[in-house]
Nucleic acid binder design. Structure first.
Lengths: 168, 168
DNA sequence: TTGACTGCAAATTGTTTGCATCATG
DNA sequence: CATGATGCAAACAATTTGCAGTCAA
């Protein structure tokens, strides 16, 4: 098990060159679009970028790259194992480099994303495998709930109907 | 948190009448559409119905009920706390009566849904609250992974590129 | 009676696809 | 040079919304 990261750990440094080398090794064509997407992801650090975010970023350097191409690039990069995408909430997916598996918690009130190290889930994963034969791959969906702040606030407003309005 | 159900509990029997009484108590109008949606959900038992499934079911008795109305009914029933919806995978949401909180595991290969009792998560929930101040509300998203069968199969095919193709 | 609910059509959002063209390996 | 990648427009699926008519309380 990797050493448990603390919240706020710096993202593991992976260079664009490494990623491109990896593509070459996998016999996956290194195209401008793919390079641009990877660049945007590397520059994005550990942030959570939607396809549209990535398109905006990519298009600063390559204005002609179409959103559809972004999606296709992401697909191939994901198939290659360089990229992961996660669903943070109703619909939109976000992408990040796959080199450091982590789980996401999203606050359904304010949209804050908390990253937690993978091993927090190891116990649950073991339980589920034992009891249900099910192997979770938890990275693909965020866990939804309330961040510290919003939970506190919710306490305060206690009594008002709890209508969940996740940021859309 | 309500008292945790035991693993394997039968779904608590809730009658249409109870649900409608609840609506009345909450001063929420009892309309044909809402009754029909509740009926479909009750009849559906513990299955996971999409809005379209529900529309089909509802429309057998009330053919004029529009899908948009199904969505609006579900919204109000959910706001009232009678219904929950969960995202099982890319996009589509499924609805069920809210009387028995449980977590969903979805196999990303075959789409099988496994329900697990809430209390399997209590430990994780405690950990996350302690370490991150985050209160998970896990019902809203399914945990994705591989069911026993598909995990086995994946073992067999080991070596082939793992391209995730969740049933869409 | 009246405000909440409904039907319908049309808009939105996020993502995918067909096809002709282009460029990597 | 062949295959796979791209740009574009158009298709898609799931969900939401504006509006005018209808109905539960």
């Amino acid at each position: 098990m990797p050493p448990a990261g603390r919240p706020g750990d710096a993202p593991a440094p992976i260079s664009l060159e490494d990623l491109i080398a990896e593509l070459r090794r996998l016999r996956i064509r290194v195209t401008p679009a793919r390079q641009a997407v990877l660049t945007a992801l590397v520059e994005g650090g550990s942030s959570h970028l939607t396809a549209v975010d990535l398109a905006a970023s990519v298009q600063q350097a390559n204005p002609q790259v179409h959103l559809a191409t972004i999606y296709r690039s992401l697909d191939s990069l994901e198939a290659a194992g360089l990229v992961d995408h996660v669903h943070l909430g109703h619909g939109r997916g976000v992408y990040h480099l796959a080199h450091e598996p982590h789980q996401h918690l999203v606050c359904e009130t304010c949209g804050t994303v908390v990253q937690v190290p993978d091993d927090v889930f190891s116990e649950l994963a073991a339980t589920l495998r034992r009891a249900y034969g099910f192997t979770i791959r938890p990275h693909h969906f965020a866990l939804v709930g309330l961040c510290a702040e919003c939970a506190e606030e919710a306490q305060a407003v206690q009594g008002a109907r709890t209508t969940f309005s996740p940021p859309r």
